[in-house]
Design a binder for these strands. Sequence first.
DNA 1: AACCTAATAGACACACTGTAGTATAATAAG
DNA 2: CTTATTATACTACAGTGTGTCTATTAGGTT
Lengths: 203, 203
Amino acid sequence: MSTTSPRTDPRVLRTRQLIRDAFIDLLEEIQLEKITVNRITERATINRVTFYLHYRDIPEMIEKLADDMIGEIHAIVVGIQNQSRSIDMDWSILVKMLEHIADNSKFYKVMLASQRIPVFNDRLMKLFVDLITSRSENQTDFPSTLPMAVPKDIAIWYGSSAFIGTIVCWLREDMPYTPLFLAKQLSLLFHIQQDTNLLIDPE
Amino acid sequence: MSTTSPRTDPRVLRTRQLIRDAFIDLLEEIQLEKITVNRITERATINRVTFYLHYRDIPEMIEKLADDMIGEIHAIVVGIQNQSRSIDMDWSILVKMLEHIADNSKFYKVMLASQRIPVFNDRLMKLFVDLITSRSENQTDFPSTLPMAVPKDIAIWYGSSAFIGTIVCWLREDMPYTPLFLAKQLSLLFHIQQDTNLLIDPE
DNA sequence: AACCTAATAGACACACTGTAGTATAATAAG
DNA sequence: CTTATTATACTACAGTGTGTCTATTAGGTT
């Protein structure tokens, strides 16, 4: 994303970090609607015009911030997928994800839990949907016939929403459980759903 | 909420309806950030100052709109809870809820699915959390011991998020299933989770 | 040292906000 | 029927935020 080679000027990185920190800071204090470019640059101790050298406006800046953070999670996912193809691949992914969120809890809390940034939620949702979809496709040991059959897309909506929603609640309550414990519970709840139901394709 | 006796002046109701319709209309077309009082009143064919006679600003207006709509859902819930105390009480509630959402799909789609309004999501979430919480308390036929035990709060987070998230996805895809069918699937997925797990209290 | 580029400073036109004062029409109360 | 109240309309204005421009300073790279 933005951590690639073409951007090496330390001044640019410094400014972006200042803007990011100022924004997250403000997001903890005031409503998103009340946050202005004025306030951000004032808090970041940079010139207002400098902001426009990096982002067109606040929504675009938010999008870029989301890009970066989702990029980091994505790197975790593909990293684990490459290093181990074992049965509990998705389990390790979940733990690493929650640890990453815990490490950046201030960021995630405002972007996801306190002042909700829809773009950010969307990106995470897509990530989970893709993950669960590919997981169910690679799954050959599927229970074939059961009394109840839930359309695949509904089951995926259900599972993905449940994951993200639970993480959001966990962040809101200031992470009362360890990432490892929560990952265990989520895994438990999710696999019950997956294994008990026959997922049928909508077509 | 606002449908009570003290407010009978038809002019007030008319103005509020105009504002509401204009807002939902705009929300379908442009980003929430770009919506101004100017645009709303222009679209509503009312004077800009009139807006301020009803709401302090746009966030407050959104909050009031959410109040009204959540009030309607709440009325559905308590209505059914009073008329029937049967085993499938929560099932009837779910169907009626989804039917209500389908009836007001334009409103729900923008407020919940396309342009996310966090306040609205929060209210719905609280409603579901309360519903599931009271449901699990009144449940005497609980499975007592099972190999896995998930803390009650996590299970409630999981279930509530799953419900709302699934409804949101359903709205985004323009309701590809009937309310009745979706209610059935949600009920299925949810009861598997509830009945298979021993929910333990955090204390 | 010379060169490039980021960041700053000040200014500008423009849009939106929030509030004030006044006027008009409809409703409610006597 | 008359009067008080309420909702809305219209105009105006000061304050603030936006986005852009130009010229200048400072930092980093070679």
